[in-house]
Design a protein around this nucleic acid. Sequence first.
DNA 1: TATTGTTATACTCTATAACTATA
DNA 2: TATAGTTATAGAGTATAACAATA
Lengths: 157, 157
Amino acid sequence: MNGTPGPGPAGGPAPRRDLAAMVVPLARALVAAEEPVLRAHRVSMWGYVVLNALAEQPVRTQAALAQSIGADKSRIISVLDELQEHGLIERRPDPADRRVHLLALTEAGRRRRESVRAAIQRQEEERVLAALPEADRAAFIRALRILSTLPPEDIRG
Amino acid sequence: MNGTPGPGPAGGPAPRRDLAAMVVPLARALVAAEEPVLRAHRVSMWGYVVLNALAEQPVRTQAALAQSIGADKSRIISVLDELQEHGLIERRPDPADRRVHLLALTEAGRRRRESVRAAIQRQEEERVLAALPEADRAAFIRALRILSTLPPEDIRG
DNA sequence: TATTGTTATACTCTATAACTATA
DNA sequence: TATAGTTATAGAGTATAACAATA
């Protein structure tokens, strides 16, 4: 309700809520906001995560892909199955080691990812970033970029 | 690895990852960082959320409390049981309406919440905010404060 | 009949552990 | 024997629905 909640006139360090207490609800809201967009584009949340991962770092084995998105290797299998059925990725056995499946985006996959991304980011600009003082937007995104790529160990201690 | 990933020289709007793709991993890392602190203070994550909620808006019914923290009323019951066992909150039947239980922090609860909060925020200053350019820190917190209190409907559309 | 707190049930995710095929 | 991918099982967390007491 008010801008500076909390302790009285005594002063002291300006009180703030814990970062987690602010970031977690924001994360939930952002994910919820993506859901209708993803549905409209016929892609699941994990499917979109995988499309992004493959677009950012072209080829990899399934285990490496899983690790890069913080998932278990068993968890992404149904996701890959579905993406493949829809023609968005290719899975081809590696001639050099027939145990591994080489992963690659198809052209359709690349296009799909682009249109989902455009729709999501447009919504973010209009509904999220627009709520911020214009002078703070760049700093906010800069901070997010830094913190989201910080190794979790650095944060845990 | 590099500051400005992505598309080549063509230009266009500076590419960025989706906000959700940055905020979700950050949220996970922040929660993971709180866990050892909470364990050391013998409070569960949900317990701490409840202590904070009660400290910020003193008295309320269980249903209202649940709603204020985005949980189902059935989900907080075991949490309240445990906090009460530990003497951190009081649950007293409302004389005016004997269906409702009036909730209140005990003095021990208030103190416990304060020490957990101090420990968590100290860690956040040292490990998270310290990673940001100093000029960006205030803007980052300002932005979080605004966005985390934005009604989810405003974000979803 | 509607509402508060509670308990019981079901469902969704996720992690773990077995299994196969290659190496 | 060790590893990549897959499948099956089990566990945690959450939501939904039924219940008793009170209004």
